[in-house]
Simulated scan of single mutants.
Amino acid sequence: MKSRQDAWSERDDKLLAETVLRHIREGSTQLNAFDEVGDKLNRTSAACGFRWNAIVRAKHTTDIARSKKERKQRMRALKLKTKPLYTPPETVIDYHEIDRKTELNVSIDDVIGFLQELKNGQTEHDEELQHEIETMKQQNALLSKQTEELENEIHKKEESFETIERDYEALVKIMNRARKMVMFEDDDLKANTFQMDRNGNLERVANK
Score class of each variant (00 low, 15 high):
Met1Pro: 09
Met1Glu: 12
Ser3Gly: 15
Ser3Thr: 12
Arg4Thr: 10
Gln5Met: 02
Asp6Met: 06
Asp6Glu: 08
Trp8Ile: 04
Trp8Tyr: 03
Ser9Cys: 04
Glu10Tyr: 07
Lys14Asn: 11
Leu15Val: 06
Leu15Asp: 00
Ala17Met: 11
His23Ile: 04
Arg25Asp: 00
Glu26Ser: 10
Glu26Arg: 14
Ser28Ile: 06
Thr29Tyr: 08
Gln30Thr: 11
Leu31Thr: 09
Leu31Lys: 12
Leu31Arg: 15
Asn32Phe: 07
Phe34Gly: 05
Asp35Gln: 09
Asp35Thr: 12
Asp35Cys: 05
Glu36Thr: 14
Gly38Ala: 01
Gly38Val: 03
Lys40Gln: 15
Leu41Pro: 03
Asn42Pro: 02
Asn42Thr: 13
Arg43Asp: 01
Gly49Tyr: 06
Arg51Ala: 01
Val56Pro: 02
Ala58Gly: 03
Ala58Cys: 05
Ile64Ser: 01
Ala65Asp: 08
Arg66Val: 15
Ser67Phe: 02
Lys68Tyr: 12
Lys69Pro: 01
Lys69Tyr: 13
Lys72Met: 08
Lys72Gln: 09
Lys72Pro: 05
Met75Asp: 10
Arg76Pro: 03
Lys79Cys: 04
Leu80Glu: 14
Lys81Ser: 11
Lys83Thr: 12
Lys83Glu: 13
Pro84Asp: 03
Leu85Phe: 12
Leu85Glu: 07
Tyr86Asn: 00
Thr87Ile: 07
Glu90Thr: 08
Thr91Ala: 04
Val92Asn: 10
Ile93Asp: 02
Tyr95Ile: 09
Tyr95Glu: 09
His96Thr: 11
Ile98Lys: 00
Ile98Gln: 02
Lys101Asp: 00
Thr102Trp: 03
Asn105Ser: 13
Asn105Phe: 10
Asp109Asn: 08
Asp110Trp: 03
Gly113Cys: 01
Gly113Gln: 00
Gly113Lys: 03
Leu115Ser: 05
Gln116Thr: 03
Lys119Ser: 09
Gly121Ile: 10
Gln122Thr: 14
Gln122Ile: 14
Asp126Phe: 15
Gln130Ala: 14
Ile133Phe: 15
Glu134Asn: 11
Lys137Cys: 09
Gln138Cys: 10
Asn140Val: 09
Ala141Pro: 12
Leu142Met: 15
Leu143Ala: 06
Ser144Gln: 08
Thr147Leu: 10
Thr147Arg: 13
Glu149Gly: 07
Leu150Trp: 07
Leu150Phe: 04
Glu151Ile: 13
Glu153Tyr: 02
His155Cys: 09
Ser160Pro: 04
Ser160Glu: 13
Phe161Gln: 07
Ile164Ser: 03
Arg166Asp: 04
Asp167Arg: 09
Asp167His: 08
Tyr168Arg: 06
Glu169Gln: 09
Leu171Cys: 03
Ile174Val: 14
Ile174Gln: 07
Ile174His: 00
Met175Val: 11
Met175Leu: 13
Arg177His: 08
Arg179Glu: 13
Arg179Gln: 15
Met183Ile: 15
Phe184Asn: 07
Phe184Trp: 10
Glu185Lys: 15
Asp186Lys: 13
Asp187Phe: 00
Leu189Glu: 04
Leu189Asp: 03
Lys190Pro: 00
Ala191Leu: 02
Thr193Glu: 10
Gln195Lys: 14
Asp197Ile: 12
Asp197Trp: 07
Arg198His: 12
Asn199Ile: 02
Asn199Arg: 12
Gly200Pro: 02
Asn201Cys: 02
Asn201Lys: 13
Arg204Trp: 00
Asn207Val: 11
